[in-house]
Design a protein around this nucleic acid. Structure first.
Lengths: 223, 223
DNA sequence: TGGACTAGTGACCAAGTGGTCATTAGTTAG
DNA sequence: CTAACTAATGACCACTTGGTCACTAGTCCA
């Protein structure tokens, strides 16, 4: 074992093959920036990784390039196609579908890198956020709103959900998303029993939203 | 009119009395930091205010002092005592109470300085946030949870609400808070009809939450 | 064993940061 | 009109930042 326990001081220079080093950098950067925000410095990051900051610039020409890479890693390639199936499985009761979907989703999302980076990005106006939210609207909020409309008015079959239905579905999403926010942004102590939390929230939604929607639609129509 | 239209160039040096200058600085700083985040520089801020950055240090010994002051201005002194009355007015139906309270609250909150600064502060771990959320829990979430418990189980009279009831009330709060977040953090286009939004959300809550709570309590008891 | 290849570094640069201070110039009371 | 008071400034300091580059030293093949 040639590489064990050096007598003379310090972790000497380590030579990694470029591929490994790169993933090490990207992963480290994800963690680092999510803690500190994207104003964190390249030198600090390098120190954490135990390398010189010059090396970072060997792998990424600018800080921006690294940051872009971190974003990419965190969001894109993070929508699990299986979720679509869960959400649209006609053979399952709506409650069950929503509970399953949001439990999976929450489990994937409820991590500091994800949540904090997302919020940092929102504040900075990074456009990846807006793209992501559009995706959420298309894949989750709108379908849920359609389902909700059907529950509220079983007879009607409208393709596009009303504004109120969308608002209510965004409400569900926001409510669920607020759990990781409370945990990772505001540092509050909150449940870790994600499934119970989702079940509770979804039940409330399905018990209350159809009535609220009917109410809103009829008062709007009466005007 | 001695001070009108100088022929020779530039807005010359202006001499304000300290009190006015100070409020001008604090207000400008609130706007500036809420846009840029607290990593914004004192020089930039000064340029925006049309003064030299040295002057800022005449009024605030350090940047931190200014930031503290901005926080103070934005949150503390921003809980309207009238809200307590609205929320606890036994003579009014719960729906109406919640709608009124949250409409007022949302109107006060739904401004970029407030929302963005709050979120920036959360990410940075500023303790004022945690204090504020404790206040919300004490003044809003907990009372709402108590009310909710009463609605779900009219016979019981427990002083402290269950975990599930609290969770549901936090859900309501999160859902409502998510509207300004979407507007000011993620830059989405969302309703400006706050009252209609609150009415919708509160209705959904009151229609759905008691049932969800009963459900949760009985399955927990059955175990 | 010795070279060639190249991952990794230290020292450096220009631009920006928070913060200081001697100096300048509006304003007003006498 | 002048002198005194003090709001406001410009020039400066030490330090940090993103980024560059000539050099150093692991590793592996001949």
């Amino acid at each position: 074992m040639p590489n064990a326990e050096r007598a003379h001081t310090r972790t000497r220079r380590k030579r990694l093959d470029p591929e490994r080093r790169e993933t090490e950098i990207v992963e480290g950067a994800s963690r680092y920036f999510s803690e500190v925000g994207f104003d964190g410095s390249m030198r600090d990051l390098a120190a954490r990784l135990g390398i010189s900051h010059a090396l970072l610039f060997r792998y990424f020409p600018t800080k921006e390039a690294l940051v872009d890479r971190v974003y990419e890693r965190i969001y894109l390639s993070r929508w699990d196609p299986a979720w679509d199936a869960i959400l649209n499985d006609e053979g399952v009761q709506p409650v069950e579908r929503l509970v399953r979907f949001y439990t999976h989703y929450l489990k994937a999302i409820d991590r500091p890198e994800w949540v904090r980076t997302f919020v940092y990005g929102g504040l900075a106006g990074v456009n990846i956020n807006q793209r992501y939210l559009k995706l959420i609207e298309r894949k989750v909020v709108a379908p849920v709103a359609v389902e909700l409309s059907r529950l509220a008015r079983p007879r009607e079959t409208r393709a596009t959900p009303s504004g109120a239905a969308l608002e209510l579905s965004w409400g569900l999403h926001g409510e669920i998303f607020y759990l990781p926010i409370r945990r990772w942004v505001y540092g509050m102590k909150v449940t870790t029993d994600l499934e119970a939390f989702v079940a509770l929230t979804v039940t409330k939604f399905l018990e209350g939203a159809p009535a609220a929607l009917r109410n809103a639609l009829s008062t709007a129509a009466a005007r």
